[in-house]
Simulated assay, not measured.
Amino acid sequence: MFTGKISFISKLGLGAALAMAALSTYAAPPTTVVVAFPPGGPADTLARVVAKQLESSLGSSVIVENKPGGNGAIAANFVKRAAPDGHTLFLSSAGAISINPTLYPHLTYNPEKDFAPISTLVSTPEVLVVPATSKVKSVKEFLDLAKSKKEGVTLSSSGIGSMPHMAISLLRIATKANILHVPYKGAAPAIRDTVAGQVGGFFGDISGLLPFIQDHKLTAIGIADSKRSPKLPDVPTFDELGFKNVYASNWYGIFAPAGTPKQTIDALNKAMQVAMASEDARKYAETSGVEASVISPDAFAKLIQQDTKKWGALIKAEHITVNE
């Protein structure tokens, strides 16, 4: 019963036959997902959930590599130089793509020219929280306090030009309140000092704040979205409270280097759809309060254009600058 196989080897040569067998089982090159945030945070967790699911779709290992810094610029510059073969991907929030182009006059990458959008993965509203020990328990009380204090109130963010910073600016414009922005180098130290009562409050992604809210270390008082969060059903939107245009919803999405073939982008988009429909991704979205949102590459490109215009106008109106 081995006649056919022996005949095949004798004709081809044993060495060549073994080489072909090796090639048939040779794994595809690994795919690296470069994350613009440090390990342990919501974006890193999302990346690892997606990476695990992608391994089945892509038929190869998927590695998560963290390159935080520069509001996403370090990771962006690394990915833009990668080969456009679909094996190096960039997981970023709106900051590096839609905010940085206006914020940094000498940005070392061009989001429109250097990257090919694949899809959003999740969206997450910005939530205003105050220390659990604070006497403030509502947006009205927060604004009343701002009016009563000559120096106003402080609100921290994860950094200049971050989505929380955008939310603070929108709130200040809508309410005319005396709010002093206190930027930190990342969400973790800002949350830590807010819990300790060193600042009056903090604006941040719901995914990073939910554990502190559930542990009663922070109190959520307002959501910068068009609808309430199922995880925080008792917390009103600013629109409900009569403050219009306080919409600051962050997204996390996947990109490839510019020049990646369209068929590769389309295949990766389908892989993202499968990944975000998985049970692990569903549990991640449910527990972290984010909303899974996979869209087409064209729809993602349009969203980026809209956000770039919106946040660019706000940055210019507020004269927001950074030291480069």
Rank of each mutant, 00 (worst) to 15 (best):
P125C: 06
N71I: 09
K80C: 10
G59Y: 04
V127E: 11
Q53A: 15
F90T: 04
E151T: 14
I160H: 06
T102W: 10
V49T: 12
V130T: 09
S157I: 00
K52Q: 14
L89Y: 10
E151Y: 12
L103D: 04
L143G: 03
N77Y: 06
V127R: 15
H87C: 08
Q53Y: 05
D85L: 01
S158K: 03
M166G: 05
N77A: 11
S157F: 04
T133A: 12
T108S: 14
S60Y: 06
D114M: 11
I74G: 01
Y109M: 11
D114G: 11
G69I: 03
K147Y: 12
K52I: 05
K149G: 00
M166R: 07
S134G: 06
L155K: 04
G159K: 03
G159R: 07
A47E: 13
A73E: 13
S98T: 08
P105D: 15
A132V: 03
I160M: 13
F115A: 11
V64D: 02
L128S: 01
G86W: 10
Y104S: 07
G95V: 15
K149D: 02
E126C: 08
R81Q: 15
K149Q: 09
L107T: 02
V129R: 06
I97E: 03
S61H: 00
E55L: 06
S61I: 01
T154N: 10
P117D: 10
V130A: 03
N110K: 13
P125Y: 04
P125A: 08
V64L: 02
A73M: 09
S98K: 01
P68H: 06
D44I: 04
A73R: 13
A75E: 02
Q53M: 10
A82M: 14
Y104E: 06
Y109L: 08
G152D: 04
I168P: 08
A96H: 02
S60I: 02
S119V: 10
I63C: 00
G70T: 10
